[in-house]
Structures are given as C-alpha cells and as structure tokens.
Nucleic acid binder design. Structure first.
Lengths: 295, 295
DNA sequence: ATAAATGATAACTATGAATTATCAAATTGA
DNA sequence: TCAATTTGATAATTCATAGTTATCATTTAT
C-alpha cells in the first residue's frame, strides 16, 4: 500500500508529463503502456496526490503535477551532473563545464575562452552547444547548462549576467551598391533601403539595437526579411533583396560576395554577455566565471 | 554490467558513508549485510568510480565518495521537501516552512512570527526545531531547514542574514547579592565576580559581546562556568556560584530565585537574526522572509 | 592459539516490475 | 449510424533482481 519512490518513478513521470500521452511515453521509455500506468499510479499513491487528470481522451497535469515536473527536471539534471562530477573526481579530473553559445559568438570569443580555460585548468572538460538566447536561459535555469553566451540586456532574478565582449556593428551591402567605404557618410544614406535583420524572437536585444541605430539617423527602417542565420542574411543581401546590419565579428569565417562597412562612429555596440545561475552547484563554474571576468 | 542508479542506491550509500560500517549500516536499513554490499558495488560500477576504500578492518570514503555524500544529502533532502510540497499543493495548501531557532528566541520572537504567518498565510504549515547556531547553519546549507533564528554576526557566502530582534542585556544576581536595582552603578562594580556564561561554541557572538561589555567597564571577566541552558545558568547563580549576563527576554518563562538588573545604559545589544539560503527552492520561503523583514 | 569481528562471495528465494491479452469508453469517418 | 481506431485501466502471467542465508578469508583482540 505504501510504495517507496524510486528514480524510475521520476523518469517515468517526466516522460508522461512531457508527452501527456501514456502510450507515446511508454514507447519512448521502451516499456509497455500498462507497466507505465501502474508505476505512475504508484507514484501518485506514494505522494497521496493526483498528478494527472485522465479524461478518457486526454491527459493533463494537475497543479501539483506541474510543480513536481519542474522539480523533477531540476533534480534529475542535477543528479546527472553529480554523476559526471563524481567520475571526474575519481579520475583526478576537476570537472565539467557545460557551455552554451550563440552562433555569432563562435567566431572569436568562445575559442579564446576555451584556450584560456584549458591552459589554466588542463583537467576541466567542456561540452559546447549552439543554442538561441532563450534556449540557453531555460537550460541554465534547469541546471542543464552552466554558462551561456548570449545577447541579452536583462535576465530573471537568480541569474547573473556580465558583459564579456563588445563589438561594433557593420553594414552589409551588395558588392555593386553605390555606397562604398570611401563615400560612406552615415546611416541617413539608407533611409529608403529595405533591411534584412535577425528575427526579434532569436535576439530581441539585437533587434532593438538596430532599430535604435536607424532611429538615431532619423527614420524607422523598413524590414523586408528576418532570419536566424548569418549566412542566409548575406545571401539575401548578395542578391539585392536588402541591406543588413550585423556585429562586425560575424563577417569573419564566411566567404560571401558582399561588402562590409564598419560603423565605428555610431554609439551602439553589439554586446555579448555570459550568464549563469547563482545557485548552480557545479564547483567548476566559479573558476570559469572568475577566469572570464578577470580579463 | 551497466546498472541503473535508483534512489535505493543513494539511501544505502548515505547510510554506509555516515556509519563507515557495512554491518551497522545494513542493520540501520533493515536489510542484510551482503545485500547492502552488492548494492554499493552496483553503485560504484554504475559510476565507474570507487566510493569507499575497504581496508579489511575499516571503511573510508574516497574523495569522489566524499563529494557524492554531500550531493546525495542535498538531493535527498530536496526530494523530501518536494514530496511534501507536492502534497501540500494537492491539498490546496501553500506549502511548508521548516524553521530552526535558538532556545532564547522561543520566549517572544518565534510565537509572534508564527501568529503573523498563520494570519497572513493560513495555509502554510510550519515545523519547528530547537537547534544551536551551527546546527541551524548546517541544516540550512543542506536544505533540511528553510529559516534559522540565530545569534551570529557572519554567515558563509550563499547564506543571507538579517537582524529581526534587538534586546538589551540583563545582569543575573543571587537574591541576596548586595547590589540591587536601586544601588546599581555600572559593570565596574562586578570586577571581582565570577561569571557564568553561555559557552562560546554554542554562541560565539554572545560570548564576544559579553566580553566586550566587561572590557568597556575596564576589566576581563573571570569565567567560572559555561552552559548552554538558561535554566542551568540561573540555578548556578541562585546557588552563589557566580553572576551572569543574559539577553533580557530570557528571564521570562522561568520561575527562578534570582534577581535581574537590566543594563539599559550599555551600548551592546543581543541581536537575533534570521538566516536562510539564497538558492533555497522552497517557494514559501520568500513569502516568509518578506513578511518577517517588513516589520 | 582461540575467539570475535569484518566485508566478500555463492546459492537460493521471493518480491514486484514488466509483459501479454483484454476491456470499456471516447472519437473518427465512411 | 455503425464499424474501426484510439485511449488508459485491469487481470493474469513471467521473469529479473533485490534481498536472504550460509559460508569464507582476513584481521584484530584476548
């Protein structure tokens, strides 16, 4: 009657809570549906609390289930980290740092950081994931990631943010555009152009900053296309579909038929920041952050 | 060959890590010693890491085991809280606040706080534990306690501290002592007395403060006895074994044959503070702290 | 030297996780 | 409207493995 909760129950619970579908969850877990049903029922009995409402056609989480889901995600991720950490200590390695980054940070900042880290702490392992701003923030909140490289101006309470790299912006123009580095006067020259930008959902800060650059030049830009990949933006510019404004660093590493004009005189800068969770228990994180911010 | 870790393993591991003795741990867990041995071996295999060194007469933790112990304590306590929390939410209650306190705070502050809390959040449950300063700090670091009422001036990083109650000190004298409330001049009158104090281990801040009170009067007190219980101290004073200095509030609730002189003119105060962990995930804590500090 | 204590190993037992087969209810669609 | 499909729950059965008992090898204490 009084079951003991095991990690199995938590893993199963999470699968059902995510898919809200017993059969699909069972399939994902490589067990049969009746087995999953009984295990979930056991968990509910152990907690004396209903976690799902089964409505004979759809499954939904109760408020208690909703709460448990968030906590289980946290607990399981934390346990996963602990397992790795224990192994690292057993091997005489210091630990692992899980890093997320925006594509636009791969050009320069990330390689530099990794080299620095390897030099100072040769035994620290790293994992790298290219993720959007919001994906990184979520992963950090759930202890799936230790460190994120993002372009954000605000983060929720409990998360720290520190700028690590400042870049100018550059104009991206088709090769045959009448404006050149030599005859470039200012952004007011592009009042009538169509703009191609990174989408606001991908990076709200970037979007707002570009808007403010045009605003300072006295107009609101017409945005014809939005994309999340630099390469796509370059290709669109190359084909005369508009002009773009990008962080200067981004032009490296691509071989595109466009020309760049660095906007040194405008005040806006593309700021890359690190974010991490203040209550992160990974002992390696502190050293990584210290190292990063000492530059 | 590749075992799945379960909570059972973690509970068993913790029992062995605490007793450093397989047979005793097995007894405590109500299972047989061989069963425990195999489960621990499974855990070690799952982690590919040795956790204990069995030296054919004694068992010790490896560094990796040491690390795991701390993390497992944290995880299991956190899971325990989560279970309660889920049940509370399921019952439409808000949650549970686990409070620790010094005996000397029970007189006034704790009952007041509890009444306030019950009034503002009728659905919050509380558990109360009388613990020493350091026991509270440890319990808070391990997520076994949410809120502690202590007399401390510093706390480790990651723990917050906020004063909530300030009390004057009072002299405790035997009934027949020549000094009375009427002819009391100052602490310099007690230069030659023996002092009975709370032990420094129990409350370092109290000890230092009493020392500084005598220092201000121009002498170093001779300390003849130390205790952790107010009642013991009163009893010793009553029997002429010395005099004492205590937070004034403490005299309430005891019916002792001693007299008290409140030291209103000296600058030192007995400060009671709340402490809590900044990364505590109990959603109730924030409301409790807010309520407390708003007074 | 003998007795007591310790953790590991081997063989066995029995608990309960997981499977298969099936049901009842709800939905879909010809 | 009625068969076909989809859903989670239930019942009976199987089987993996946690836990047991019995025993050993080694160390420590008397």
């Amino acid at each position: 009657m009084n079951y003991q909760i095991e990690l199995r129950h938590l893993h199963y619970f999470l699968a059902v809570a995510e898919s809200l579908h017993f059969r699909k969850a069972a399939e994902r877990l490589f067990i049969s549906q009746p087995g999953l049903s009984t295990q979930i029922k056991q968990l509910e009995q152990a907690l004396h609390t209903q976690l799902f409402v089964r409505d004979k056609r759809k499954v939904v989480l109760t408020p208690a289930g909703e709460y448990l889901k968030a906590e289980v995600e946290y607990l399981l991720n934390h346990l996963e980290l602990t397992k790795k950490q224990v192994q690292h200590i057993g091997n005489g390695e210091l630990g692992e740092l899980r890093i997320g980054f925006l594509g636009s940070a791969m050009q320069q900042v990330i390689p530099d950081l990794l080299l620095l880290l390897k030099k100072r702490f040769p035994k620290i392992n790293t994992t790298l994931d290219e993720l959007s701003n919001t994906a990184q923030l979520n992963a950090i909140l759930k202890d799936k990631l230790d460190l994120g490289f993002v372009r954000l101006s605000r983060v929720p309470k409990g998360v720290a943010l520190a700028p690590v790299f400042e870049d100018t912006f550059s104009l991206v123009l088709p090769k045959n555009h009448s404006v050149t580095v030599e005859n470039f006067k200012g952004m007011q020259q592009f009042k009538e152009e169509e703009f191609i930008l990174f989408s606001a959902a991908y990076s709200p800060l970037y979007y707002d900053t570009v808007m403010s650059i045009c605003e300072d030049a006295g107009y609101v830009p017409r945005v014809s296309h939005k994309s999340v990949h630099a390469q796509t933006i370059f290709k669109l510019v190359e084909n005369g579909l508009g002009i773009a404004i990008i962080p200067t660093q981004l032009q490296n590493g691509f071989d595109m038929a466009v020309k760049f004009i660095e906007l040194r005189k405008i005040k806006q800068r593309a700021v890359l920041s690190v974010i991490w969770k203040l209550d992160n228990r990974n002992p390696v994180l502190k050293q990584g952050v210290d190292l990063l911010l000492r530059n």
